[in-house]
Design a protein around this nucleic acid. Structure first.
Length: 925
RNA sequence: GCCCGGGUGGUGGAACUGGUAGACACGCAGGACUUAAAAUCCUGUUCGCCGAAAAAGCGAGUACGGGUUCGAUUCCCGUCCCGGGCACCA
């Protein structure tokens, strides 16, 4: 019997499906383990070999945990709402629901082919009304909540209203607009509309006007993390700043808890740092400077600084051009220049501003007064100061800040040196370790001490406060698109009114046209019925559905709650979450926030969703190139090219060729001729009878013809080989190129394993003899290695471990039942099909999946251990057999008594004997 | 520019807390079986030296230069290179 992998794999995949082998129950005596993959967006392109990498790793880990006696939740679903489906609909006239469905079916077929142990009875789709009913429900929770800063948690807004009635907002400063202050009497006197307006400034999901990233080509606004280098992440279209009414998530209120939570979870350092940088917490102070202006319309200028200690080095102030205060600062003499500059700033797109960082600015004609020495400081405006951060105004200290320094030099502003010889007059020095000079009462004081002295003084004078700032902004939460969750909100006389829970889900209506509605509204604004009901016409962004999906898997059919408390208490946090790094500041931050809100409101019992995150690397494509002599249809083999990359002086075109018609580097010339019509009559200049292609490692993509379809690999080598090979390629976290050639090695291993036990004609050969100590050693060594490697995600070395094991058993001609059965169990997570088949052939009942993991016994490995004493000065090594149960003293005695060691010592006593790992003993001469 | 990672044979990569560097596999070379091919198996494969060859031996070697240590791919300092993230956040 040959190893006919396709037959075996099809058989077992059907069997698992029939028996619902992977169905998981929410009630079990076993400890739980929740292993989750980032669910895919079902694109039309299908899977390439890079996609399943993380799924394979999580599948192996899930199966391993199941064998170790855990109740394992390992679900899968689809992030089905999103822009690409809608773009496709606009271009091809296919409804997104239809194309998404087709894509999902294809994904599913490809996934099934690889033999994953997903519990498909728990499948979810974010575009399914029974799912987004709860996305809408959670949105309403956010809408109906505010963040209590004193208790550091979200609470129902109804409670806040009660507080306002009795004490106003003196203990609850308004996060949306700090200038809103009122007492109880004032609150009770407000109109309903005014009260609602104020409450909107407290809600965790709120609607407000703000500068947003507007992408004309996509016809929607985008969140900050969806804009990269001034263009849209999807499609690379230009993005401009626009003031629009938008929904937001008040994620800034959670900044501190999002930071603090990072300390309690296992994310990679790089990932934690990315999130930390995104949140961007900085400790500083706000300082009010008195202002002397022509119009006397402004009394003070408030700036934000992290370096109050450098206050004597302030040579100018800079205000963001967008600030309203600018109007009042400009003097008659400077008015024209200021207006001209403001017009210039307005004309610049975000993109231009980022691309060319020109030093620009203009003097307003007003001055600020240094509170300590009365110095007059000119106030400038410049685009390098951002309106949205801090107070939108800074105190510039050129000798200590690079940007201020460049600005001062450019505009010939005199620079005050407060750093003594730490400042060279050429470059700013941002040090915090200098002794202050030229600094009035701070002279001679180290900077770090000065900070506090200045702050205390400013506080006494009532013109300064300590202030923490965050770089993170509230997240834009509405999209002017069709293919997303509708907001369960009605607008009545300008007031947002939530739909009652009984009317959820608010289903997405069918539309004929995906064209934007009037005035930047979404396609829903084109539906008369929708508009008549005064429903919100925006839809939620892609990250809405993915911010909580891990909870739905726990209780996917529940129509009374997003997830029963019982289910979420049982499954708890995701123990292992696997996915790419591209969601570092998007999905991973939003889902962490939603989890915290649901926790605060008492709906779940944990406030971090993911206990451990593993980021899988990308599998890159290994592209192949052919070289065509320019203007001809003749292709030159790579080795025949000149050093300059030309052929006999003629230029050649380097063209991507489909990797699937190249064997290693050898082009299949006949397949090439039929690949594209224009190559039908291609001529080849061969070397040694072959056409050799060039190669390069690039991102895997259709346009580079370097994608490899897992279907083809599975067809040719089998799913078990494919799974093991993807792991064997290297550590899961590392990006590495795909190399189809290398798969032979893993395939040979499985064939060898099969042949070791299955005779071509006689079938399975198993003896029931007792294993020898040598055989037991091989087995237990392998059990230990695989268990350790699997637990620490070192799947590549685990695969090597299996290979070594089979090679050794092959040498021993060991075909014993007592060795095979435990081996099948430890191999099952990696190669589920072949092990299931052999398990059945061996006459074992049930599935190998339900076997119990063999226990590693040290005695088998220890028995024949050896010691290797090394004379460290002589570098020589000798082998001594020692029972490693011996104590260190006994080992030393045996080693020193050894003949070779005696020779090294030559009668002298050793300086010392060092007993180290790997059975090495060093004898220092 | 700043902040993280990382640099090991022809290639992917091993070496877990400092302890026989290069496991395992690909590729390559040679060989066996075969009319032949496929499949399978065996041997060799870091570099250099010594040798007709084999066995054995010697020397160097984990980007480069230094340091700590009996001992460094691993720890420390400096330089170079590659990958990723952030980029006027005061």
């Amino acid at each position: 019997m040959e190893y006919s992998f396709r037959q075996i794999e099809k058989k077992w995949q059907a069997e698992w499906k029939k028996k619902e082998t992977y169905r998981v129950s929410n009630t079990s005596d076993k400890p739980k383990c929740y292993v989750l993959d980032m669910f895919p967006y079902p694109s039309g392109a299908g899977l390439h070999v890079g996609h399943p990498l993380g799924y394979i790793a999580s599948d192996i880990y899930s199966r391993f945990k199941r064998l170790k006696g855990y109740n394992v939740l390992h679900p899968m679903g689809y992030d089905a709402f999103g822009l690409p489906a809608e773009q496709y609909a606009i271009e091809h006239g296919v409804h997104p629901a239809v194309s998404t469905d087709a894509n999902i079916n294809n994904f599913r077929r490809q996934l099934d082919n690889i033999g994953f142990c997903f519990d498909w009875s728990r499948e979810i789709r974010t575009s399914d009304p029974s799912y987004y009913k709860w996305t809408q429900w959670i949105f309403l929770q956010l809408f109906e909540s505010y963040y209590d800063r004193r208790e550091q948690k979200a609470k129902p807004i109804a409670g806040l209203v009660e507080i306002f009635k009795t004490e106003g907002n003196s203990h609850h400063p308004c996060p949306g607009d700090a200038s809103i202050r009122f007492d109880a009497a004032e609150w009770n006197g407000f109109t309903e509309a005014r009260q609602q307006e104020i409450l909107m400034n407290y809600r965790l999901a709120y609607c407000g006007y703000g500068e947003v990233n507007w992408c004309e080509a996509l016809g929607t606004v985008l969140a900050n993390d969806e804009v990269v280098n001034g263009v849209s992440e999807r499609g690379g279209f230009p993005v401009v700043k626009k003031k629009l009414r938008q929904w937001y998530l008040r994620i800034t209120e959670y900044a501190d808890r999002l930071l603090e939570g990072l300390e309690r979870i296992e994310f990679s350092e790089a990932m934690k740092e990315m999130q930390t940088n995104w949140i961007g917490k900085s400790y500083g102070a706000e300082i009010d400077f008195a202002v002397r202006s022509e119009r006397n319309a402004v009394s003070k200028l408030r700036v934000y600084t992290t370096r109050p200690d450098t206050i004597f080095g302030v040579d100018f102030m800079v205000v963001a051009p967008e600030l309203e205060i600018v109007e009042d600062l400009k003097s008659a003499a400077q008015a024209a220049a200021v207006d001209e500059y403001l017009a210039y700033v307005k004309s610049r797109s975000e993109r231009e501003r980022m691309a060319e960082k020109k030093i620009t600015g203009v003097f307003t004609g007003s001055y600020a007064i240094n509170p300590f020495d009365g110095k007059e400081i000119p106030i400038w405006i410049s685009e390098y100061v951002l309106a949205g951060y801090g107070t939108g105004a800074i105190m510039a200290v050129p000798c200590g800040d690079e940007r201020d320094h460049r600005f001062a030099q450019h505009f010939n502003i005199p620079i005050t040196n407060i750093l003594g010889d730490q400042y060279d007059g050429v470059e700013a020095n941002p040090t915090k370790d200098a002794i202050l000079q030229n600094s009035g009462f701070l002279n001679g004081i180290p900077m770090r001490e000065a900070t506090n002295i200045v702050l205390e003084k400013l506080e006494q004078m009532g013109i300064g406060n300590r202030k923490v700032n965050y770089r993170m902004r509230d997240a834009a939460f509405s999209r002017q698109r069709y293919w997303g969750e509708p907001f369960p909100i009605q607008w009545k006389n300008g007031v947002a009114v939530p739909l009652p829970e009984t009317e959820l889900p608010l289903e997405l209506p069918h539309v004929e046209s995906y064209k934007p509605g009037p005035e930047g509204e979404g396609p829903l604004a084109n539906i008369p019925d929708w508009v008549a009901r005064e429903l919100e016409t925006n839809t939620m962004p892609g990250y809405a559905g993915s911010s909580w999906y891990f909870l739905r898997y726990m209780d996917p059919q529940n129509d009374q709650a997003f997830c029963s408390r019982e289910a979420s208490d049982y499954w708890g946090q995701v123990d292992l979450y696997i996915g790419g790094t591209e969601h570092a500041v998007g999905h991973l931050l939003y889902s962490r926030m939603w989890t915290k809100v649901l926790y605060d409101l008492g709906h779940i019992g944990f406030d971090e969703p993911f206990k451990k995150l593993v980021n899988q690397g990308m599998i890159q494509g290994s592209s192949r190139f052919v070289y065509r002599i320019n203007g001809t249809n003749t292709f030159v083999s790579k080795g025949l090219l000149d050093a300059e990359g030309t052929y006999q002086g003629k230029t050649v075109d380097k063209l991507h060729v489909d990797v699937n018609i190249v064997d290693g580097y050898n082009l299949d010339v006949n397949a090439f001729r039929t690949w594209k019509p224009e190559y039908e009559n291609a001529e080849f200049l061969l070397e040694d009878g072959a056409y050799i292609c060039g190669s390069e490692v690039e991102k895997m993509s259709k346009s580079k013809f370097n994608t490899v379809n897992p279907d083809h690999i599975v067809e040719k080598f089998g799913a078990d080989t494919f799974r093991m090979y993807e792991m064997f390629l290297g550590p899961v976290e590392i990006s590495k190129p795909w190399d189809t050639k290398g798969i032979e090695g893993v395939h040979r291993f499985l064939k060898k394993f099969w042949r070791l036990y299955v005779d071509e004609t006689k079938g399975l050969q198993l003896s029931s003899e007792e294993p020898t100590p040598e055989e037991l050693k091989v087995l237990h060594k392998t059990i230990r290695k695989i268990e350790e490697d699997t637990e620490r995600f070192s799947f590549n070395t685990a695969v090597s471990g299996f290979m070594i094991c089979v090679n050794e058993l092959n040498d021993l001609k060991c075909r014993k039942r007592a060795i095979l059965l435990p081996l099948l169990v430890i191999l099952a997570p990696y190669a589920p099909h072949i092990t299931e088949e052999l398990w059945q052939m061996a006459g074992e009942t049930g599935s190998v999946l339900d076997a119990s993991y063999p226990v590693f016994e040290e005695k088998y490995v220890k028995e024949s251990s050896k010691a290797y004493p090394v004379a460290i000065n002589g570098k020589t090594r000798t082998e001594i057999t020692i029972d490693l149960n011996a104590t260190q003293e006994e080992v030393e005695a045996i080693v020193l008594a050894n003949e070779t060691v005696q020779k090294w010592l030559d009668g002298k006593a050793p300086k010392k004997v060092v007993y180290v790992k790997n059975r090495m003993i060093n004898v220092v001469l």
